[in-house]
Design a protein around this nucleic acid. Structure first.
Lengths: 225, 225
DNA sequence: AACAAAAGAGAGCACCGCTCTTGACGGGAG
DNA sequence: CTCCCGTCAAGAGCGGTGCTCTCTTTTGTT
């Protein structure tokens, strides 16, 4: 579409590589991600792949950024479709969309919310922005909650200082207590998803979606919405 | 101590291999765990390691079982030191011990509560028993809570059936509502630990232990203790 | 002391990430 | 229209991996 034929071909090649990489990821897992295997499947010699991807780690970073953006898209779309004043609906939509996305692509979910790929930390300067989209959505929700709830009393001690620093860092008006509840709800939500996907209790529930929805309701209660 | 010298030497060799493997795990991560590197560090040729360890995957399974048992020991000890009727204290001790264990050995924690090591699922028949020690502790706690709280009303619909089946499976008298709250608390607890260790918000809190303790209190409230 | 089991050594296979050099191709400049 | 240079693919090769096989040495036991 855009750029010279050369640039388009190049972009297409990179897309192909990432597509095959994701298939391989889903089949074999992130440690088995192999540039040589990608090259084979692409009908190309392995060294040629390095024309498009600097290294295996860089490819993983690309996939992580893609995953963050894909999750961000899914969650933002679902949350954005809710009435702005339906706070509980927004929370539920956010969680349901995140779980649905994760269930659909467990390998990509593992890439971003599993334990880090060993020996490699995704550079923050690369993942930074896409990596915060979901949490920003929650923070916006918390701001709205704060406006409708009686102001919470600040927490005393070093924990209060931590929350104050966090609030300054974010530049958002969210009380200590609500911020703590939001963090817990957020963490619990991704904990629930991770346990469903990776935990030892995988087959405990016939209807995982219903269970997740149920727990999402409990967390909404915790948030007071 | 026990057995013939041969058996003792053999057990010692296996211990050495596992010790070095854990060090390597802590330094490089699970994907970089290399039998050849272990052999080098042990001053032994790589093929000799296979006298003691069937394969790299089997070694990983051993480490997973060890990690489960180590965590189980730590948590059982801490929880066992509490007065039996101090339910909140038992919950707090359980969580605090689990977090402390995880913070001390993040790589081993990642082994059991991170996303599964790619391309390999630890066989349940091996990990089965040690893998359930912490959850059994929580279940025992839930049974005690159930005895002191008014019986909870069963949940309707398919979710109720799931909980009923779960209750039958466990053979424990725990009401639907409490079981759901227990699952959420358990999941949230490990979610908190995972986020502290692997999450994007690693440096958000100066005093992570205080924050964790605070959230543990919220979860105790959720459990009604 | 003799023997057999256990342990170690070494070579080798197939795979991996990554680098370097060598040709082939093709679009833009003269 | 030709030539040139950037892009691409290919191939060889380095050091690493898990794992297997065979052969030799060690060592506990009888």
């Amino acid at each position: 579409m855009t750029g010279t034929p050369r640039q388009r071909a190049r972009a297409q090649a990179i897309e192909d590589i990432k597509r095959i990489a994701k298939e391989q990821l889903a089949r074999e897992g992130s440690a088995a991600l192999s540039l040589r295997a990608i090259a084979r499947e692409l009908g190309i010699v392995s060294s040629a792949v390095y024309r498009y991807v600097p290294s295996r780690d860089e490819l993983l970073t690309m996939l992580i950024v893609d995953a963050y953006n894909s999750l961000g898209d899914a969650v933002e779309t679902a949350e954005g479709a809710c009435a702005r004043d339906d706070l509980r609906g927004r929370w539920t939509a956010l969680g349901t969309a995140a779980r649905a996305w994760a269930v659909e692509r467990p390998s990509e979910y593992a890439l971003i919310y599993g334990s880090p790929v060993p020996g490699y930390q995704a550079p923050v300067e690369q993942t930074g922005d896409p990596g915060t989209r979901v949490s920003f959505l929650l923070l916006a929700l918390l701001v709205e909650i704060e406006r409708r709830q009686p102001p919470s009393t600040p927490l005393p001690g070093p924990l209060g200082e931590d929350f104050a620093a966090l609030r300054d860092n974010l530049g958002l008006k969210i009380g200590d207590d609500l911020l703590a509840r939001g963090y817990l709800a957020f963490t619990a939500m991704f904990g629930l998803i991770s346990f469903e996907l990776f935990g030892q209790y995988r087959d405990s529930f016939a209807d995982c979606a219903a269970h997740f929805d149920h727990q999402l309701g409990r967390l909404a209660d915790l948030l007071g919405i």
